[in-house]
């Protein structure tokens, strides 16, 4: 069948199926299992109302359980086993982790990931804060915001192509068509550089892509937070003779500290999962490996599920503090 047609059928089936499930299950609950009539009407209504939430929740719980909760456990199990040729698994304990820790590529990925984790959230948040503060004060600020926010809509792969053109290199005797090299030559560079193959520095050229994408996100959230600051605090500061910089750093920033933290952690999680950019631009060559790409490499190129799962568990481990922090905050808020 034509895939587009198949998609259409799926939409119809999916929507009808979903609505049908919820409608019919409610109907069955109310009329067949616990009918609201007869001698036990009152008790039945109570029973039905106890069961109903779970009817509403069931598909979502199945989806969450199967696609997110179960894989965490299963990945942990896989990371402790080794596939046996011909099928089946053997328990190998921590051997996969040991092997991973011996690989220089893993340590390269760890080192790069740590650099990403420091640089990208910091610069995205800083740029976001800067643009949020500046655009709030001018009339065409909304237009500016929407243009800076735009990279959010562009795929990592699309962004990789966009930036590869910026970093493009031509032989020295030709005109440079990559902007970075053109600027480099314009400001007195002699040899055009192949930016993505210069170890260590090339990591920063990759990070630039993610910063470019994430700044808009940071800006939107921080701009809303800045607007939420009570006017009186700022007016009081003006009366006391504070300058614009003092107002910004001493009055505004402390008041939106939690929001800054939220933005920071959200970008941190994005950074830990970053895969497409590295995959599309260097594929981890020239010492640009990161954990997510290292893991993909192990899983699907080396076909080593044990080692790949161990790498995935490392990512999970790095996310866990943020996970706990989020859950604790959410519980505090619910109370």
């Amino acid at each position: 069948m034509n895939p587009a047609l198949l998609g259409l059928v799926t939409i119809v089936l999916g929507v009808v199926g979903c609505v049908g499930y919820f409608y019919l299950s409610n109907l069955v609950l109310d009329t067949v299992i616990f009918p609201a009539r007869g001698p036990h009407a009152g008790r039945n209504i109570n029973w039905a109302n106890m069961v109903r939430p779970w009817l509403f929740l069931l598909p979502a719980i199945v989806a969450l359980g199967l696609y997110l909760a179960y894989p965490v456990v299963e990945t942990l199990r896989l990371s402790l086993t080794e596939r046996v040729p011909g099928g089946g698994y053997t328990w190998v304990g921590l051997a996969n982790y040991e092997q991973m820790l011996k690989e220089p590529k893993f340590w390269e990925a760890m080192r790069n990931n740590i650099m990403w984790l420091i640089v990208v959230p910091a610069l995205s948040t800083a740029f976001g804060l800067l643009t949020a503060q500046l655009t709030d004060r001018i009339r065409w600020g909304n237009l500016a915001k929407s243009l800076i926010f735009m990279p959010m809509a562009i795929s990592f792969v699309g962004a990789a192509v966009i930036w590869k053109l910026v970093y493009d290199t031509r032989p020295v005797e030709q005109d440079q068509i990559g902007m970075l090299n053109a600027l480099y030559i314009f400001f007195g560079g002699t040899e055009p550089q192949t930016w993505l193959t210069i170890p260590i520095w090339n990591n920063f050229f990759l990070m630039a892509v993610l910063i470019w994408i994430q700044t808009g996100f940071a800006m939107v959230i921080l701009s809303a937070a800045l607007r939420g600051i009570p006017e009186e605090t700022i007016e009081a500061a003006i009366v006391d003779g504070a300058g614009p910089l003092q107002i910004f750093f001493k009055i505004k920033v402390p008041q939106i500290r939690t929001t800054i933290l939220v933005v920071w952690t959200t970008i941190t999680i994005t950074v830990l999962k970053v895969f497409d950019i590295v995959f599309a631009m260097t594929n981890g060559q020239w010492e640009t490996q990161v954990l997510a790409n290292y893991m993909f490499d192990k899983l699907f190129r080396a076909n080593d599920w044990g080692l790949g799962s161990a790498a995935a568990m490392v990512i999970m481990l790095l996310v866990t503090p943020i996970l706990i922090w989020n859950v604790r905050n959410a519980r505090k808020e619910m109370r």
Binding site: L68, P71, F275, M295, A312, I315, V327, A330
Partner: peptide, 19 residues
């Protein structure tokens, strides 16, 4: 609700092989 908040940040990388 807490579980949903927790699962928000679980990297989907973990889900690849098991699923």
């Amino acid at each position: 609700v807490a579980a949903v908040v927790g699962l928000l940040v679980v990297p989907l990388q973990l889900a690849l092989i098991p699923l």
